[in-house]
């Protein structure tokens, strides 16, 4: 088996791809955005609730996509739930660096993080958009 494939499809990715966590819609929610990959048609809807203390109290998504995009969305919701917006933005920036294969120093993410499992996407440049779709939806929901 090719190492790149093993690196891309780690156990945790396959698990989250097949059984995504936080799948559904937040009720109530005060932020939402759609993610869309025009290259392949994959899409998702992200909803979350930010409380008075700028904390993401709950965050969920629905949609359809490949294992990478679903796992990334699922792991993202797990990671961001309970985080302050400022911290979430730092994670966003680290994550996009991690999967785009740049060698930027990461500020908050490390090898212990489940999100680190998506590092293998860097070996498949055409799949980076799959991994970042949910994250860009998150970023655009923050702006809305």
């Amino acid at each position: 088996m090719n190492d790149l494939i093993k690196e891309l499809y780690q156990e945790i990715i396959l698990d989250h791809g097949q059984s995504p966590r936080n799948f559904g819609e937040c009720d109530p929610h005060n932020r939402s955005a759609d993610g869309h990959n025009p290259l392949c048609g994959d899409n998702l809807k992200l909803t979350f609730f930010i409380n008075n203390e700028d904390v993401i109290e709950d965050i969920k998504f629905t949609g359809e996509g490949c294992a990478i995009s679903l796992a990334s969305a699922s792991l993202m919701t797990e990671k961001l739930k309970g985080k302050k917006i400022h911290d979430a933005e730092e994670i966003f920036s680290d994550f996009t660096n991690l999967v785009s294969g740049t060698n930027e120093d990461l500020k908050v993410l490390n090898e212990e993080d489940s999100l680190y499992a998506l590092k293998g996407v860097g070996g498949f440049p055409m799949r980076v958009k799959c991994a970042t779709m949910a994250w860009h939806a998150f970023k655009s929901a923050l702006k809305s």
Partner: peptide, 21 residues
């Protein structure tokens, strides 16, 4: 299995196929 996974898997086997809409 999503077509993306099929295409990425086949790619490392040397087989170039299209995936998507």
């Amino acid at each position: 299995i999503h077509s993306h996974e099929v295409s990425s898997f086949l790619d490392v086997e040397g087989v170039a196929i299209r995936a998507g809409h």
